[in-house]
Design a binder for these strands. Structure first.
Ligand SMILES: [Mn+2]
Ligand SMILES: [Mn+2]
Ligand SMILES: [Mn+2]
Ligand SMILES: [Mn+2]
Lengths: 233, 233
DNA sequence: TAAAATATTTAGATTAATCGAAATAATAAT
DNA sequence: ATTATTATTTCGATTAATCTAAATATTTTA
C-alpha cells in the first residue's frame, strides 16, 4: 500500500506538485490562455505569496519546461504547461459539476473544495466521473470544460441584454453570484441548462420578456438581463 | 481564492499534513486500534520509509499530542490521534463506497485513489457524500465506516467456512482480492450485499452448498468458503 | 537623460519530509 | 555476564516551498 504523497504517474509530462499545478493554472488564467506574459507581482498577488517566492517557483517551472521565462521579462506559459493547466482546469470544473448536481452544493461553497479535488491523480477517476455526470460541457458557472486533450469548445456566452429579440439559448452561467440573485433565479425556475427564448424587449428601460423552457413567460429587469448568460444553442 | 496547500480548518484538533494523517492511520492499524505499541521498524515498513524518518515523524506527532512516545519503547496512539485516524478512515471508506457504487470501480483500483481522496478537508463534502450514498455502514471490503464521532459499529464478520449450516447472512467482504477470485465471484453472482444461506456442508472436504439471494444454489470449495465473509444479518 | 519610483531577483533563513551512515540502546545468545 | 545481534535514534544532508531584507534592474517622471 503506497501511503505517501507524490505518486509517480505518467512521465511524458512530469509529475507536478499541487503547488506547481496551482501556479500553472494561475499563469494560464492571468495570461488569458497564454496570450500575454504574466508579471511576477501579479502572480504573487493571485497566489497570495511573496514576489520572491514567485521568482523561485517560476525558475522551477521553467526548468520543467512548463513556462518560458527570461528574468525581468515576465513569464509565458509553454505548450506543455498549457496542456497541464487545462487538465487541472478540466478536473476543477468536472468536480464542480459533481458538487452542484450530485451533492447540492451552493455556488459559493464550490471553490474551496474543488481547489483540493482538482489535484487528485487518477485518469480513471476522471473518465468515470465524467461519464457519471453525462459528459458535461460546462461547469455550474457556465465555464466550458476542456476535453481530455485540453481542447476548449469556446462557446460564446452573452448576457440576455445583448441578444436580439427572438433569440433562443441555453443558460450557461451568470455574472456574479449574490445569494439573493440565485434565490430569485431559483424562484422563477431558471438554472444552468434551462432553455430561454427572448420574446420582447421594452425599449424604454430594457426589461425583457422571456419564455422559460417553452412554458411560462416572465418579465425580467434590465439588471437580471445583464446577468444571465446564454449560449446560442 | 486560496490556492495553496495547507488550509487551516478546525483548530481544536490541529491541522495535520497528508503525510501525518497517513502515519496516524498506519499507527492506528498496526496497533490494532490502539491496543498495543507500534515499533519503529514496523511503521517504517508499512510507510515504506527509512526508520530514521519514522523516528523524526513520531517526534513531530508526539509534540502535537497525537501519539504518546518514549524512545525505544514504541509509539502509542493518543485519544486525539485515534479520533483523527478514525476520521481519515471514515473518509477513506466513504470514498470507496462512492467509487464502487457510483463509478463502478473494481476492488483492486480502489486504494490508490481513496488514499488521495481521504485527505480532502471539507466537513460539508463528507456530510453530503455520506447522504448521497445513503449513509453506508460498510465499505466495499466489508469494513465498517466509523461515524462522525469516530464510533465504530463493529459488526462481526465470519468466513462461510466457520458458520454452521442454516446460517443466513450478507456478504460484507472477502479475504484477499486476487483478480481471478473476484472474477469467480462475479461469475456466480456474489458481491457485497448479496444474501447467502448455508444449506449444506460436505464433511469430507468442507465444501459448502449455498443459496444465493434465495434463487439458485451452488457448491463452493472450502477455499472459497474460507474467503467469503458474512455478517449475521 | 538623470533621479525617483516601482518591479524583480538574489541572498540567506526556516520548516516539513525525507535519506544514509554512525552512534547508541535493548535484546538475544553464548 | 559478556558478547553478538538487532532495533532505534542521532547526525548531517537534501529538496520543496516559503519568507524577509537587501541588491539590482526596469520604468516613469521630471
Ligand atoms: Mn533562494
Ligand atoms: Mn488547487
Ligand atoms: Mn534530524
Ligand atoms: Mn492517504
Amino acid at each position: 500500500m503506497r501511503y505517501n504523497q507524490p505518486l509517480p504517474i505518467a512521465t511524458n509530462t512530469p509529475m507536478l506538485s499541487f503547488v506547481e499545478e496551482n501556479y500553472l493554472k494561475a499563469i494560464y488564467h492571468l495570461s488569458e490562455a497564454g496570450k500575454r506574459p504574466v508579471n511576477t507581482n501579479a502572480l504573487a498577488e493571485e497566489m497570495k505569496t511573496a514576489p520572491a517566492s514567485v521568482s523561485d517557483m517560476i525558475k522551477r517551472l521553467s526548468e520543467k519546461r512548463m513556462v518560458d521565462y527570461q528574468k525581468y521579462r515576465g513569464v509565458n506559459i509553454s505548450e506543455k504547461g498549457k496542456i497541464k493547466a487545462l487538465h487541472v482546469i478540466r478536473q476543477h470544473r468536472i468536480w464542480k459539476v459533481f458538487l452542484v448536481e450530485k451533492l447540492n452544493f451552493q455556488w459559493d461553497q464550490l471553490d474551496e473544495v474543488a481547489e483540493q479535488l482538482e489535484h487528485i491523480k487518477s485518469p480513471l477517476l476522471f473518465q468515470r466521473l465524467d461519464e457519471f455526470l453525462g459528459f458535461p460541457k460546462f461547469d455550474p458557472h457556465g465555464d466550458p470544460i476542456p476535453d481530455e486533450n485540453g481542447q476548449l469548445i469556446e462557446k460564446r456566452k452573452d448576457p440576455i441584454a445583448q441578444l436580439p429579440v427572438g433569440t433562443a439559448g441555453i443558460v450557461v452561467g451568470v455574472n456574479g453570484s449574490s445569494a439573493s440573485f440565485l434565490k430569485y433565479l431559483d424562484k422563477v425556475g431558471i438554472s444552468i441548462g434551462t432553455r430561454l427564448q427572448i420574446v420582447d424587449r421594452m425599449e424604454f428601460d430594457g426589461s425583457v420578456d422571456i419564455t422559460i423552457d417553452g412554458k411560462k413567460t416572465i418579465t425580467i429587469s434590465p439588471t437580471v438581463a445583464e446577468n444571465i448568460l446564454l449560449s446560442e444553442a
